[in-house]
Design a protein around this nucleic acid. Structure first.
Lengths: 220, 220
DNA sequence: GCGGCCCCATGCATATCCTGCTGGTAGAAG
DNA sequence: CTTCTACCAGCAGGATATGCATGGGGCCGC
C-alpha cells in the first residue's frame, strides 16, 4: 500500500517512514502542503497521512483542496493534542480518521490497517487468478496449482502488480515506481533479480519479458 | 461503456435501461442470477449493476461466483435501504460500490462515472485494427489473422505509427523522427530494413510504398 | 551470529539493430 | 522502345544493447 506522508518535522517523518516501511508500506514523504498536492497529482497514493501544522499552507487547506477535486483517498490527520478543535474541522472537511500527537506507533498501524481493509474490500476482489497462479490480496498468500508458495515482500509486491495488470506490459519504470518510494531508488538490476526469483517459483513462461519495454503476465 | 443490469423488478429495470441508454451506456438486462452468469460468460460487460433481491439465487451468491472465477469487473450493488447488513457483506464479497433503494438517478450516474474513470485509467487497452492486423498498445502485442506475432521494439514502433495513421502517407523523415530521438539519427537504410522485416510478418501488400515519398498502410 | 532478504556488481548470451553493399524496379528522358 | 537514374528491396557481418544468471556482502530480525 502506498502512503503519502505530509509532515514538516523531518526527524519525525524519517522515523515514521522507516517504521512504516518495515510494515510493508511504501512511504513517500513531502514536507509541505504544496508539494503534497503536486505529489498527489503525479502519483496518487492509497492513503494520505497529513500533519496539520505545515509551513506553507494549512493542512486543512490541503484537505479541502483535495476533496474539492472529488478525490476520495482516505486521509488520516495528525495534530497536536491541544488543538482539539482541529479534529472537528478535519472530519468536517473530509478526513477519515484522526490521531493526536504524540501518538503510539501501534495505534497508527492499527488505524492504517483499517484503511487497508477498507481499500481492499472496496477496490478489488481479494483473489486474483491467472492461469494456475492464485493471489489472495487479503491473506498475502500465493498458491501455484493449489499449492501454497512463500513470497518475500518485494517479490509479492512485484507479482501482485503484474497480475493486477494481466495482459498489459508494465515498463521497468512503472514497476520500480510501484515497489520503491522516492529516495530509495535502486541503481542496479535488482528488479531483474526479483523477476528471476519469481520465475523459479512460478510456472514456466508465466512472466513474459518484452525486450526493451518491460514485463507482463498474459491474461488467460 | 457496457453495463449488465441484473434486476428482477421489470418496471424498474426498464426505466433504468432507458435512462442509462440516454446517457450513452449500452445496457443489457437480465432478471435473474443464473441468466446474469450466463450473460457474463458470453459477453463480459464493463460494469455489473446487481440487485441483491433476486428470485433464483441471491445476488451475493452471483457476486461470489464471479469473484471466485477471478473476474474483477466492477460491481455496483443495489439493495433495499432497510437491509444495511447487505452492504457490509456485499463489500466484503467484492462489490465496488453500493446504492440503497430507492436511489436518485443522478447519484447512480455519478457512481457509474467513477467506474468509467477507473476503467479508462487502468485498462488503456487501446486496440487498433486494420484489415486482419490487430495491434494492442497496452499489451504491446500484434496479431495477424488472430495469430500472435512477435515484434521487436523498432518494428513495433514503426508498425504502430503506420497503423495509427492508416490511409495517410508518412514520409521517411516523419517515420525516422518518430523512431529515433535526437542524437541517434541514422545514416543508412535502416528504416527500409525494418520495413522489409515487417513485410515478412504481415499480409502481402499491407505496407504500400509510395515512391519518392514514403510508406502507408491503407485504411480499410 | 545465523539466516533470510535484498541490493549490487560482474560476466555471459543473444536479440536487436545499424551498416554497407549488391541487384532490382519504376518512371522519366531521349 | 531504350536507356538512364534515383530510389528501393534484400542480405549478411559486426556492433550494441538488453536481459539473465550468479555470487558477494550489508542489513535486520531472531
Amino acid at each position: 500500500m502506498h502512503i503519502l506522508l505530509v509532515e514538516d518535522d523531518s526527524s519525525l517523518a524519517e522515523g515514521l517512514q522507516q517504521a512504516l516501511g518495515k510494515q510493508g508500506y511504501v512511504v513517500n514523504h513531502v514536507p509541505s502542503g504544496r508539494l503534497a498536492l503536486a505529489a498527489f497529482a503525479s502519483e496518487p497514493p492509497d492513503v494520505l497521512v497529513l500533519d496539520l501544522g505545515l509551513p506553507d499552507m494549512d493542512g486543512l487547506q490541503v484537505l479541502s483542496e483535495l476533496r474539492s477535486k472529488g478525490l476520495r483517498t482516505p486521509v488520516l490527520v495528525l495534530t497536536a493534542r491541544d488543538q482539539l478543535d482541529d479534529k472537528v474541522t478535519g472530519l468536517d472537511r473530509g478526513a477519515d480518521d484522526y490521531l493526536a500527537k504524540p501518538f503510539d506507533m501501534q495505534e497508527l498501524c492499527a488505524r492504517l490497517r483499517v484503511f487497508e481493509r477498507r481499500l481492499s474490500s472496496v477496490a478489488v476482489s481479494h483473489v486474483v487468478r491467472v492461469g494456475e497462479v492464485e493471489l489472495d490480496t487479503a491473506a498475502h498468500a500465493i498458491s501455484v496449482a493449489g499449492c501454497e508458495v512463500e513470497m518475500p515482500r518485494r517479490e509479492y509486491m512485484l507479482l501482485k502488480t503484474l497480475m493486477e495488470n494481466a495482459g498489459k506490459v508494465l515498463t521497468r519504470e512503472a514497476l520500480e515506481a510501484r515497489l520503491y518510494s522516492w529516495g530509495e531508488e535502486i541503481a542496479s538490476n535488482a528488479l531483474e533479480v526479483h523477476i528471476h526469483h519469481l520465475r523459479k517459483k512460478l510456472p514456466e513462461k508465466f512472466i513474459k519479458t518484452v525486450r526493451g519495454i518491460g514485463y507482463s503476465v498474459p491474461r488467460r
